[in-house]
Design a protein around this nucleic acid. Structure first.
Lengths: 253, 253
DNA sequence: TCCTGTGAAGCGTTTCACAGCT
DNA sequence: AGCTGTGAAACGCTTCACAGGA
């Protein structure tokens, strides 16, 4: 699965382009310093670090549940699968909330990461394309970790319209803009066949959706203010295939 | 969704550590030059480029279907969502197969990318955890783009054992090592709850599986020779959340 | 003594810009 | 004239190594 986050535009490319994995280049004009509800610096956290913060958050939550109140960088790093220098650097982007000689207070860190990731606010999710995958996503029912309630479902199939899936009735693709606006959807998940993806995407954008998680194997064209991340099974498998092939010396029968 | 590919070990960390997104550092000891069936250089293709090659392949296949025989870097780049310099650099890792003043021959490029990614050989897939997501994955039936047939399914649920899903009967988790070995599974997909993931992973490894695609929100510990990629919905959503928050000036109500 | 926080070095990736072939 | 292929510069991320506080 590849993850995309386009930013730069190529030479003659007008619209924002989405690209897989380590593409993007948060270069030049990053937004100037902005502050969140607590005054935490939220500027210029490297892309890569943001992704890891989410992982630290999960690990920290698990640790908190097991009663840990304090954690050292080495311990947290190991649990999160990174080295401790990277972890400390990542955390330093949030500010200095550790205690030298001791470590970090779990609850404090959880709070700061949540604020930094904008998890103090709900993000309503719409799932488009209620096939196998869409069904699975809709049934997650209130996405992982809470804070991401699924509040709208869409499909083209007339047989599905009105049928509740995971408690929410399916609406028609044409109603995407209206429903998204009415319900204040901020994240759209595209789980349609590739041919439908771009038009679905356009409707989501028309409905005021700011972020899109795209499972369809297509490069979506979106306006600048919309953030796209891509999950591509075929790409993931092919990358794995590359490493098998290389490991096996590439001498294929 | 985050993608992981661990490589370096942190200080006191013995087993390979998996980390999200732009982690890894294919540094130092990359395998020496190896050749594939056609003598194509397969060494030292940057991680990031490999991920993009899979995308180029999809775009090229679509172009071929529409009758294109030749394509220029600018055109292919735009369609793939990257800039043309990056595309040319990526393709140059395969060797020089373009024609100056003209472009690339589509079929030739498709062939070279397929060989480089090891797609000339089948990679049998096992899906573990036949819940909502596992069901969806099993029903993909012969994963995207062919070359990745699903040939084994596993679950703990007694009610599921023996039931065919997408044409393949579900086996018990305990049989993972035997079945994987018998059927020559090379890629394992973990779609279980997080608590089961590590033990499932260990069994897959015991069954000779070389690559794992992990949908469970856990950092898997695997031996060096096993490649793990991770797909994490919660992480993806949280990254999107970060960008919404930043865009909105972080001034949360 | 222990562990955080961080400049600075090291690397990998991206972009630039142009030489070179058709 | 057009487009590829690629050194070299630019950039961002990771790692090192140690200063400095508890």
């Amino acid at each position: 699965m590849a993850v995309q986050r386009g930013r730069r535009n190529g030479a003659a490319v007008a619209r924002k382009l989405a690209t897989p994995d380590a593409d993007n280049a948060p270069t030049a004009e990053m937004p100037a310093v902005t502050e969140n509800d607590e005054g935490t610096r939220a500027r210029s956290i490297p892309e890569a670090a943001v992704a890891r913060l989410a992982v630290y958050l999960r690990v920290l939550s698990a640790m908190a549940e097991q009663g840990a109140t304090t954690v050292a960088s080495e311990e947290l790093a190991t649990a999160a699968g990174v080295n401790s220098a990277k972890l400390r650097k990542d955390l330093s982007y949030l500010g200095s909330y550790g205690t030298r000689g001791v470590g970090y207070e779990v609850s404090v860190l959880v709070g700061h990461i949540e604020r930094t990731l904008g998890l103090t606010r709900m993000h309503k999710v719409a799932v488009v394309g209620i096939g196998n995958l869409g069904h699975a996503l809709a049934n997650y029912g209130g996405f992982p970790g809470r804070g991401f309630p699924v509040e709208a479902l869409f499909d083209v199939d007339a047989d599905l319209i009105g049928v509740p899936v995971g408690g929410i009735p399916v609406s028609h693709l044409e109603d995407i803009p209206r429903v998204c606006r009415d319900r204040g959807i901020s994240i759209g998940v595209i789980a349609t066949p590739p041919t439908a993806a771009q038009s679905v995407c356009d409707r989501l954008v028309a409905g005021g959706v700011q972020c899109i998680l795209n499972f369809a194997p297509v490069v979506l064209q979106v306006p600048e203010h919309v953030e796209v991340r891509k999950v591509d099974l075929a790409v993931e498998l092919q990358i794995l295939s590359f490493y098998v092939a290389r490991r096996n010396g590439m001498v294929v029968g």
